[in-house]
Amino acid sequence: MSVLVVLRGNSGSGKSTVARAVQQRFPRARCLVVPQDTVRRNMLRERDTAAALNIELIEHVAAFGLARGLVVIVEGILDADRYGGMLERLGRSAARALHYGFDLSFDETALRHAGRAQAREFTAEQMAEWYHGWQPLPFANEVRIDGAWGLDAIVDRIEQDIRLQVADYLL
């Protein structure tokens, strides 16, 4: 049974760290992580615009995993206006879709950003340009994750939610 997990939120909120930690809780080749940054910045080297190619490529990669019954984690800023249609289509193609929105203040995301490798690539001032605050998806009931949640609590919650949905072969 395929399960789509969407982790959305501002840069520096912890989405990539959470996605990798959740993936480690499943056997190899049972959980596919599709990072927006990897597709957009590394594979395509493109800006985040409404007509960007990464939106379609993320959808294709995620659909590939869902068609094979995997747990698929799509993570990134995933602006509701630009990526909402794609996320809605993916959710309809999955047996089950789980949505989590990281809702942290800009000060909290800047603080977290200072401790990660990307701090050498872009500054907190640059991050402020694309910080957009809470952007709920109109078609999904997102679990809202604020700064009070610790990494272990987030990962445990997502793993538990997934395991309530998946077939025994993923366990």
Rank of each mutant, 00 (worst) to 15 (best):
S2L: 12
V3W: 08
V3H: 08
V5D: 04
V5N: 05
V6T: 10
L7W: 08
R8L: 12
R8D: 12
G9V: 14
G9I: 10
G9Q: 08
N10Q: 14
G12Q: 06
S16L: 06
V18G: 06
A19Q: 03
A21R: 12
A21G: 04
Q23A: 15
R25M: 06
F26D: 06
F26T: 05
R30F: 07
C31T: 07
P35L: 13
Q36S: 00
V39S: 03
R40F: 13
R40P: 10
R41Y: 01
R41K: 06
R45E: 05
E46C: 02
E46K: 00
R47V: 05
D48R: 07
D48M: 07
A50L: 03
A51N: 13
A52N: 01
A52P: 00
L53G: 12
N54I: 02
I55G: 03
L57R: 04
E59T: 00
H60S: 02
V61D: 00
A62I: 02
A62C: 08
A63V: 01
G65W: 00
R68V: 03
V72C: 05
I73C: 02
V74M: 01
V74C: 02
E75L: 01
E75A: 01
I77A: 00
L78Y: 00
D79C: 05
D81H: 13
D81G: 14
G85S: 04
G85N: 03
L87Y: 02
R89V: 05
L90V: 08
G91V: 01
A94R: 01
A94N: 03
A94E: 01
R96H: 07
A97I: 09
A97F: 07
L98A: 03
L98Q: 01
H99A: 11
G101Q: 15
D103V: 14
L104G: 11
S105C: 13
S105R: 14
F106R: 06
D107H: 13
D107W: 05
A110K: 13
A110V: 15
L111V: 15
A114M: 14
R116Y: 14
Q118D: 15
A119C: 15
E121K: 15
F122N: 09
A124M: 11
A124E: 08
A124F: 13
A124Y: 12
A128H: 13
E129Y: 03
E129T: 13
Y131S: 11
Y131H: 10
Y131W: 12
H132K: 06
W134Y: 12
Q135C: 07
P138C: 11
E142K: 07
V143Q: 07
V143T: 11
R144F: 02
R144H: 07
D146Q: 04
G147I: 08
G147C: 10
G150L: 02
G150W: 01
L151I: 06
D152C: 03
D152Y: 02
I154A: 04
I158G: 01
E159L: 05
Q160V: 06
I162D: 07
I162K: 11
R163G: 13
L164C: 07
Q165D: 10
A167N: 12
A167V: 15
Y169E: 15
L171D: 11
